[in-house]
Design a protein around this nucleic acid. Structure first.
Length: 520
RNA sequence: CGCGGCGUGGAGCAGGGGUAGCUCGCCAGGCUCAUAACCUGGAGGUCACAGGUUCAAAUCCUGUCGCCGCAACCA
């Protein structure tokens, strides 16, 4: 039953701090990692930074720092944000690390030995100011570089090519045999189109750089961005220096990436794997982007939102909830502070939080904090059975349709529970028929239990708090989705373990007041 | 005619031949255990536009307009 699950996120450029879009990717990946662990799988969840780029070296130079020191500082800043978001990564790789350099060199040598790399020359428009080649899109109508306002020059230089074009048929076969490789399915055509029509050999080296990974068979060159970056997925698990670790985890079960880099992961990367003679990854998921008040976030517009302020205000769980509930993972979503407040208050404070408060409060004040052992079996309040809910929930989790998984819990579990409370009015019943009231309350605790379990991948802290507020039998860290699918018989009384004051609990999610026309 | 996607009440989405549905917001009422919460009801849409097929079209077909994605380094 238990198996291994190796998953990754895209590695990030450390030349600026992470924004909420970057965070969106990581949160969604983390929910998957936690879901897989709940299923009993052994999970390796890899994250990291992409450091061998010219931009990084330049930025370090501007700051008068050694590039490696600069990378380490930035990596610490990234990790600080990731920990604040409660991301449960197993390892964080920096591509400036020795293990990555070693693995990369072993890989490129292997691909060379297998005959898929050849020497050629690259010709293109070169901006002396940027010290780099520019694509047509990067230049304005007069072949001028917009940042330096200088004419780009035609330049030719020797380089090494990866013979990507020779993999066309193999890739097309691969997609045919693995129709679920590219997700969401809507990206499938895009990649097919690319592979069928414009799969060209790629330049994988640069010359004249001091920062980066040397090409082992021609040391005046360094390995160029993508060929290096993608390899973090295997160098982190020992490729080239720890065969047993590598064979334990490879191939990857899931690469979580942004939709913009689908092509590299769905075409270049499997071809690279084929060229090196290693297995191809099983699945690539390209998630959507987060916009800010309807606008695309961009550094030049200056509307990027950094996560830390909001995170400090509302904590990781509410932060995670917003993005996973409000932004469909496969598609684009929108963030605004105003909307955040609405969603937070409606779903977390008013619905989930308040159900919890009213139920615990009633048990606290009328039953001394413990419901007596039940003789009559309790009933399930929703229209769907627990089994049906868990089944649908599981399908959504496997497809990374987090917003639908969450929507399901609110519509089928929490809303019916609040409605039941209102209909049965245990606060009145308690005056006339105490045991009937106890039964009603037991029926209201059950949805809280079910929801706390199914929220575990989303709200790591709050789900645990919810669950451990009651004396359920199963230990929290051993909980599986199956535990949510049926009623947990409790032999004795059901006690409230949450700390209470005058029968009241501290609100899980205190309501937020919208700051007048606030930004963020 | 490069390929592909999308246009549904204020916002975000679902529905894919037969009284147009959900969440949030808004308005009114109920209730009062609870975080001024919860519950019930209501207003608000000629389902982008124009043709066509059909007894019947948001749903199928054709065309038009608009928006967006991809075309090698932006999560």
């Amino acid at each position: 039953m238990s198996k291994r699950f190796f998953m990754t996120t895209a590695i990030d450029y450390p030349n600026s701090r992470p924004h909420i879009g970057t965070a969106f990717e990581k949160i969604g990946a983390d929910a998957q990692a936690r879901f897989q662990r709940m299923l009993g799988n052994e999970v390796f969840f890899l994250m990291g930074n992409d450091e061998n780029t010219v931009k990084v070296a330049k930025r370090a130079e501007e700051l008068g720092q050694d590039p490696k020191a600069y990378c380490d500082t930035m990596a610490d800043q990234f990790k600080e944000v990731w920990r604040a978001l409660d991301l449960s990564f197993t390892d964080f790789i920096q591509t400036s690390e020795e293990r990555h350099h070693k693995g990369c060199q072993a890989f490129i040598q292997k691909v060379k030995d297998n005959g898929h790399i050849y020497k050629g020359s690259y010709e293109g428009w070169y901006c002396n100011g940027c010290e780099s080649f520019k694509s047509d899109r990067e230049l304005d109508g007069n072949q001028c570089c917009p940042t330096h306002n200088a004419k780009a020059v035609r330049r030719q230089e020797p380089c090494w090519f990866f013979a990507l074009s020779t993999f066309r048929e193999k890739l097309l076969d691969f997609y045919r045999e693995n129709p679920d490789f590219i997700q969401p399915e809507s990206r499938h055509n895009e990649v097919l189109n690319l592979v069928e029509t414009e799969l060209k050999d790629v330049n994988i080296t640069r010359s004249g750089e001091t920062w980066g990974i040397r090409v082992p068979f021609d040391p005046e060159f360094t390995i160029y961005v993508w060929f290096d970056a993608l390899l973090n997925y295997i160098t982190a698990i020992g490729y080239g220096f720890d065969e047993s670790l590598f064979s334990k985890w490879w191939p990857a079960d899931l690469h979580v990436i942004g939709k913009d880099i689908t092509r590299f992961h769905c075409a270049l990367w499997p071809a690279m794997c084929m060229a090196a003679g290693i297995a191809t990854p099983k699945r690539v998921f390209g998630h959507g982007f987060v916009h800010h008040k309807g606008e695309k976030m961009s550094k030049t517009i200056g509307n990027v939102v950094e996560p830390m302020d909001l995170l400090k205000e509302v904590g990781p769980d509410a932060f995670r909830y917003y993005f996973l509930r409000e932004c469909p993972y496969p598609g684009d979503g929108d963030f605004s502070y105003r909307r955040f407040i609405e969603v937070y208050n409606a779903d977390l404070a008013n619905n989930l939080g308040n159900l919890y408060s009213r139920v615990v409060g009633l048990i606290g004040r009328n039953f001394g904090g413990a419901l007596p052992p039940m003789e009559t079996p309790t009933c399930w309040l929703g229209v769907m059975t627990r089994q049906e809910i868990v089944e649908i929930w599981t399908g959504h989790m496997e497809g990374l349709r987090y917003n639908q998984a969450l929507q399901l819990l609110w519509a089928e579990v929490l809303v019916p529970a609040n409605q039941h409370a209102d209909k049965m009015a245990p606060w009145s019943l308690v005056k006339t028929d105490l045991s009937a009231a106890a039964l009603v309350l037991r029926d209201l605790v059950e949805p809280i239990r079910v929801v706390s379990i199914l929220l575990k991948p989303f709200l790591p802290k709050v789900a645990q708090t919810l669950y451990e507020s009651f004396s359920f039998d199963q230990a929290w860290d051993r909980i599986t989705p199956a535990h949510a699918s049926q009623f947990a018989q409790s032999p004795g009384e059901l006690r409230v373990l949450a700390p209470t004051e005058n029968g009241k609990v501290k609100p899980l999610f205190p309501r937020l007041q919208a700051k007048a026309e606030n930004e963020t």
